[in-house]
Simulated scan of single mutants.
Amino acid sequence: MAKEIINRVASSKLITIDLEDYYPQGKRVVFDIKNWLYEELILREKDFREQVKNHDWSQYKDNYIALTCSSDAIIPSWAYLLLTAHLSSFSKKIIVGGLEMLETVLYQEIITDLDLSKYQNVPVIIKGCTNKPIPPSAYTLLISKIQPLAKTIMFGEACSTVPLFKKNAKN
């Protein structure tokens, strides 16, 4: 008779945290103001304000926006503030920077708001494989938040993890 196969991972106290489960739904948009500049280099206030006034901001409804300028122009702070003033009633989030910065800000808010009580004195696996663009900084923020609580922290998949942290027996 064959022995019954027991899934010890499923019956353990291991808790897997998959940051992909928290990925905010919504379109990500890079809003590059380069084309609104004179010769893609100089921000002329009157022309810039005219572009802002005539732009259809409703197309960004429920989007996450990364404001940027891909040319070497020096952009005054008020320009990003003016864009934000027009975008804020339509978009979910607006940052100045690229897509990675946008994802970092989103995950910073998510991880800050996580209820961490279930990670108290249990072994934790931070899942490593994702199909969505999880920024590396999200993982560092997560481990710094759960390390004071977790018994152990590993990275990867239940079948092959990399140990990262183990609480001292004294703690």
Rank of each mutant, 00 (worst) to 15 (best):
S137Q: 14
Q51H: 15
I111N: 01
Q108S: 10
S70G: 04
T161V: 15
L14A: 08
S88W: 13
I65E: 08
F31K: 07
P163K: 15
A85L: 11
L43P: 00
C159G: 02
S89I: 11
T84P: 06
A79Q: 05
E100K: 11
I75S: 09
K132Q: 15
N171A: 11
F155W: 11
L37S: 12
N63M: 14
N7E: 03
I74C: 00
S91E: 04
G128Q: 15
L116Q: 01
K34M: 06
P24V: 05
E103L: 04
K118I: 08
G128H: 12
S88K: 15
L102E: 01
Y107K: 01
I33P: 01
W36D: 05
S117N: 10
L14W: 14
K3H: 14
K93E: 13
G97K: 01
Y22W: 13
K13G: 12
F31D: 08
T68H: 04
N7A: 03
E39V: 02
N131I: 01
D113H: 08
K61D: 12
V30W: 05
L81C: 03
L81T: 13
E45S: 09
Q25G: 06
I134L: 09
S117I: 12
F90W: 12
K3E: 14
A73D: 00
E20M: 08
Y38K: 13
I17K: 00
L82W: 05
E4R: 11
S12Y: 02
T84A: 10
V124W: 02
V9K: 06
K166C: 11
E40V: 03
L141N: 07
E100F: 12
V29D: 12
V122C: 04
Y139E: 02
I42G: 04
L43C: 08
C69I: 08
Y64P: 01
K92I: 06
F48V: 02
A150F: 04
I42C: 05
V162L: 15
K34P: 01
E100L: 12
V30C: 02
T68W: 05
L114C: 05
F165M: 10
D72H: 12
D56S: 10
V96P: 04
C159R: 09
Y22S: 08
P148I: 00
N35K: 14
T16M: 11
D62E: 12
Y23G: 01
G156S: 03
E20H: 02
K93M: 09
S11L: 15
Y80D: 01
L164I: 07
I95R: 04
S160Y: 10
D72Q: 15
E4D: 08
R49W: 00
Q59T: 10
Q59R: 14
N63V: 06
K92D: 03
A138I: 09
L87N: 09
F165P: 00
T104V: 06
Q51R: 15
P136C: 03
N54D: 12
Y38N: 10
V162E: 11
Y23N: 04
L41C: 07
R49C: 09
T152G: 02
S117M: 05
Y119L: 14
E39F: 10
P133K: 13
E100S: 10
S12L: 09
